[in-house]
């Protein structure tokens, strides 16, 4: 397999390059999270005909930095009756889960931190770790709201992993590969070859396009639920559970939850981009194609999905627990099965 990491090509594989490869995504997550928080603040403000933060820096662009500094300075409160070890561990586990998923995300044709062959499988396995952190945090807080939030979160994650997995599995059927870098490179040659439009292929792929578009939407909806975003934010449902599983957290530990949420948003957007929206490929064939442009396209597409999530958050009300289950098991799952079967049929006949 060709090398998928420019750092190893340049400097060879040693301790320093490995460290660099590990820290590059971390750096990216930190910068991205600040931008995403700012985007959340500003977009919500514009949608609601407000200005949003305006005082910190020009047009308030330093607001996320100020918020992080504020959170760092705040007192770190540990509830008296809590289970101390689990309580302190939970935010780190959640952030680890979110961050570990970055290992297989192909940022460019020349850079993926770890080009393992079962990338999609790995992302799914690692993604469930954050659920563990949520339950730990919710249970260890010794708060009834936190406990309810954690219980809701677990049931939600389990139900929505399945439609998401079906969507990803369909792409695996089309590509017969779980390597995210390979899936990305398969979609080169313009947006018509993206898997949202059935992937590369002749005119016979036309009848499969509705199903792939459907799967993209299903995956997007399921990803909203996996990242606890509106309309599926019932684990932290502000109006009933105060703040859900992180009610008792404050200061830096709360900031970890905060970062993990935004990191998770990016992870699911990156997966959606990679498997359906052509990853780091330019939408115009060879125009602006290349390793460096790849980073640009990848981040642009992923960020667009993140913006979509933010936009939805400020538009829709939230579901109730049982309705969430209804949507997950009775709507998304059957529909994703239908799409999966149709795509499998297509892959078989081709």
């Amino acid at each position: 397999m060709e090398s998928t990491n420019f750092l190893w090509d340049l400097f060879g594989r040693n301790v320093w390059t490995v460290l660099a490869v590990i820290s590059l995504p971390l750096l990216f997550v930190l910068v991205y999270a600040l931008i995403a928080i700012l985007a959340e603040l500003k977009i919500s403000a514009w949608i609601q005909e407000r200005l949003g933060p305006m005082r910190t820096g020009p047009w308030g662009i330093l607001q996320p930095v100020a918020e992080v500094i504020k959170l760092l300075q705040k007192e770190d409160i540990t509830p008296d009756q809590s289970s101390k070890l689990l309580y302190n561990l939970a935010p780190f586990i959640i952030f680890t889960g979110a961050y570990a998923a970055f290992a297989v995300i192909p940022f460019s044709s020349a850079f993926v931190p770890a080009g393992i062959d079962v990338g999609l499988f790995y992302v799914f396995a690692i993604g469930s770790i954050s659920a563990m952190g949520i339950v730990m945090g919710g249970w260890a807080s010794n708060n009834k709201y936190s406990l309810m939030g954690a219980m809701r979160s677990i049931s939600q994650l389990i139900s929505y992993e399945i439609p998401a997995a079906m969507a990803i599995l369909s792409v695996v059927v089309l590509t017969s590969s779980m390597n995210m870098q390979e899936i990305s490179s398969m979609q080169s040659g313009g947006f018509w070859n993206w898997f949202i439009f059935g992937g590369p292929g002749g005119w016979s792929k036309l009848w499969v396009i509705p199903f792939t578009i459907g799967l993209t939407i299903i995956y997007f909806i399921a990803s909203l639920a996996e990242t606890n975003r509106v309309p599926f934010d019932i684990p932290e449902g502000e109006s009933e559970l105060v703040a859900g599983f992180h009610t008792e957290y404050s200061g830096m530990k709360f900031a970890m939850f905060f970062f993990a949420e935004y990191a998770n948003m990016f992870v699911v957007s990156a997966i959606l981009t990679t498997i359906f929206l052509g990853g780091w490929n330019s939408p115009f064939g060879d125009f602006l194609q290349g390793p460096w442009w790849g980073v640009f396209w990848f981040i642009l597409k992923s960020f667009f999905i993140v913006l979509l999530q933010i936009w939805i958050r400020w538009t829709l009300p939230r579901f109730r627990v049982d309705q969430l289950m209804h949507v997950g098991w009775k709507v998304l799952l059957p529909l994703s099965f239908v799409c999966f079967v149709a795509i499998s049929l297509f892959a078989m006949l081709n």
Binding site: Q48, S239, R318
Partner: peptide
Amino acid sequence: FGMDAGAFTPFLYYFR
């Protein structure tokens, strides 16, 4: 009421 259901934006339209 909308805010209790999780929809924040109508709240601010009405307040405007």
